[in-house]
Design a binder for these strands. Structure first.
Lengths: 216, 216
DNA sequence: GGGTAAATAGGTAGTTGTACCTATTTACAA
DNA sequence: TTGTAAATAGGTACAACTACCTATTTACCC
């Protein structure tokens, strides 16, 4: 019985391309495709696949939210994240959710095959570039932890706010939208900037896009 | 003799996926791949391919600049643009450069095959969503052209400036970098905003990313 | 219970961006 | 040559953002 996988990516060409690559392996079979997060969650609800390969930046429901829901539906569901970027905060979230596969789009296509086989056996598979810095982080946290300012990840609320900013909302509009005071919105914004180590709106927007918090 | 194509996309997985799809056609053959604009231009200089399939957002040299150079190397070189977005200004530029193929990434994979065959025969191939509004634009410009404010495309200088803004430069920094006065930088910025019909920095950044003027 | 993180809200200054204006020089096309 | 678009530069006023502060409430962990 082949390993059954579901492909979720908003670009049909990428999806079919991946499908073509995967189909060259006789022990792996693509049983369904989805073009957004909601679709793939629906598929997870109505069928049983072994592996869900999910692009991190998708409309309607982003890849991580979708993965989270899919794994809640059944602990048997295994997810591999496809991502354009090797962003630390993103990987932290993915690993925190219990995702075991994380493949970069600029890596070779056979990595996705390796990832499918590994995750199917309940092992981790991270693209080399990612595992490198996960290991490095581990080493760093073991070593001198005196006075190290940890790179914090954003809170839920902060993620909500950075999304609105990236979508073009002003602070005032963010405040109105979330029914909080302008001062609170500003406070969140400043906290985000501190965490990201910047003081520019442009960087917030770039970060949000990079993270898939919002789409272009 | 098969149609020889070159693939240029910064994501290896996308590239190999496309390659897999194309290889299913016996009359088309991928003879080279590139992961950025500069690479594909080098390939064009040192070999003779029939079709260059070029992703519009690539590092080092973006897809349109690369295409322009490739077509200058030889008028025999034919280009198909692969793009994530159906952005008007982008398509205008591509068609203006003499590019005959424009395929959206969210369309079906066989469109790229159709595009290869059409462009090889020197015909146009645009994804349906694009050709629709190209035709619509044609109709609109035929009709009432009284008092129509045309959506202008950005000038070279404006594109240069929006790129810097999107990369996080402040107006002051843009002025210094380009050796112009702050006032000139502001004037350009305001012109850009008027052309794009917005008054927000966030929109400039999103536009620049969408257009592939800069990358995340 | 005490400590900590997060979300809330305010003040005050200074910087940057946006909306209006005007005006000159250059280049290219009708 | 006259017109037009683009790039240049300036003025003024107001809006938005950023950098510092402080402080309260809630929730959760040790």
């Amino acid at each position: 019985m082949p390993i059954e996988v579901v492909l979720a990516d908003d670009h049909a060409i990428v999806r079919q391309g991946l499908g073509a690559v995967i189909s060259q392996e006789h022990d792996i079979k693509v049983i369904a495709e989805a073009s957004n997060g909601k679709e793939v969650v629906d598929i997870a609800r109505n069928s049983s696949a072994d592996i869900f390969i999910i692009d991190i930046t998708m409309p309607v429901l982003n890849g991580l939210e979708a993965s989270s829901q899919i794994m809640q539906i059944s602990p048997e569901n295994k997810v591999i994240i496809l991502s354009m970027h090797d962003n630390r905060a993103f990987i932290e979230r993915a690993l925190g959710l219990g995702i075991k596969g994380y493949v970069l789009k600029d890596s070779a296509a056979d990595e996705i095959i390796q990832a499918i086989r590994a995750v199917y056996k309940n092992e981790y598979f991270l693209s080399p570039r990612i595992s490198n810095f996960v290991i490095q982080d581990y080493i760093d946290s073991r070593g001198k932890k005196i006075g190290e300012k940890k790179i914090m990840s954003l809170t839920e609320r902060e993620r909500e706010i950075i999304q609105l900013i990236a979508e073009g909302y002003t602070n005032k509009e963010v405040a109105t939208h979330l029914k909080i005071s302008l001062k609170t919105a500003l406070a969140h914004r400043n906290n985000i900037m501190q965490k990201l180590g910047t003081h520019r709106q442009a960087d917030l927007i770039r970060y949000a896009l990079k993270e898939g918090i919002t789409t272009i």
